[in-house]
Amino acid sequence: MKNFVQCGDTLTLPAPYAVNSGDAVLVGKIFGVAVAAVANGADGEFKTNGVFDVPALGTDVAAVGAALYWDSVNKRLTTTAAGNTRVGVAVAAKANGAATARIKLDETVA
Rank of each mutant, 00 (worst) to 15 (best):
G8S: 08
R102Y: 04
I103M: 09
Y17R: 15
A92R: 14
V33W: 07
N96D: 12
G88H: 07
I30Y: 05
A18I: 10
D71E: 09
G41C: 09
V5M: 12
A92Q: 05
F4G: 03
V38S: 05
A24K: 01
F31K: 04
V54P: 02
L11H: 14
T59G: 12
P55T: 00
V64W: 01
V109N: 03
R86N: 06
L57D: 13
F31L: 00
E107H: 00
M1H: 09
M1D: 08
N96L: 14
V35I: 13
A66G: 13
G88V: 07
T100N: 06
A18R: 06
K29H: 11
G50A: 03
D23T: 09
A99D: 01
A15N: 11
M1C: 05
A18S: 15
K75P: 10
P16R: 04
A37S: 12
D53C: 06
A39K: 14
A98T: 04
V54A: 03
A81P: 01
A56G: 05
A37D: 06
N20C: 08
T12R: 14
G97N: 02
A90G: 08
T79A: 02
A82I: 14
G41H: 10
V38K: 04
V51W: 03
M1L: 08
V51L: 01
V19G: 00
G65D: 08
T85I: 09
G8Q: 07
N74G: 04
V91W: 09
N74P: 04
P55N: 01
G88I: 05
S21C: 06
P14G: 11
N49T: 13
T48G: 10
A95H: 12
A82L: 11
V27Q: 08
A36T: 13
A81D: 05
N40L: 14
L26K: 01
R76D: 00
V91L: 07
N3W: 12
G97Y: 11
V61C: 00
A90E: 11
V64F: 01
G97C: 10
L57T: 14
T10Q: 12
T10H: 04
F31Y: 11
T59P: 03
T79K: 01
N74V: 03
D106W: 00
V73S: 15
F52C: 07
A36D: 15
T59I: 11
G32P: 13
R102H: 07
L13P: 07
K104R: 13
T108H: 05
L26G: 02
A99V: 08
K104T: 09
V51R: 09
A24F: 07
F4V: 09
T108G: 01
A37V: 00
A66D: 15
A99I: 02
M1K: 05
D9V: 08
V91S: 03
T108A: 15
V61A: 11
G41Q: 11
Q6V: 11
G88N: 04
D106T: 05
A36P: 02
T48M: 06
A82D: 10
N74L: 07
V51T: 10
V64M: 02
T78M: 10
Q6A: 15
K2I: 08
G22V: 11
K47I: 13
F52D: 04
A101S: 03
L26W: 03
A42D: 13
A56K: 00
L13V: 10
T10R: 10
A63H: 07
L77N: 05
P16G: 08
N74Y: 02
A15H: 10
A18L: 01
G58W: 01
A15R: 09
C7E: 10
E107C: 00
V33I: 15
D23H: 06
Q6W: 04
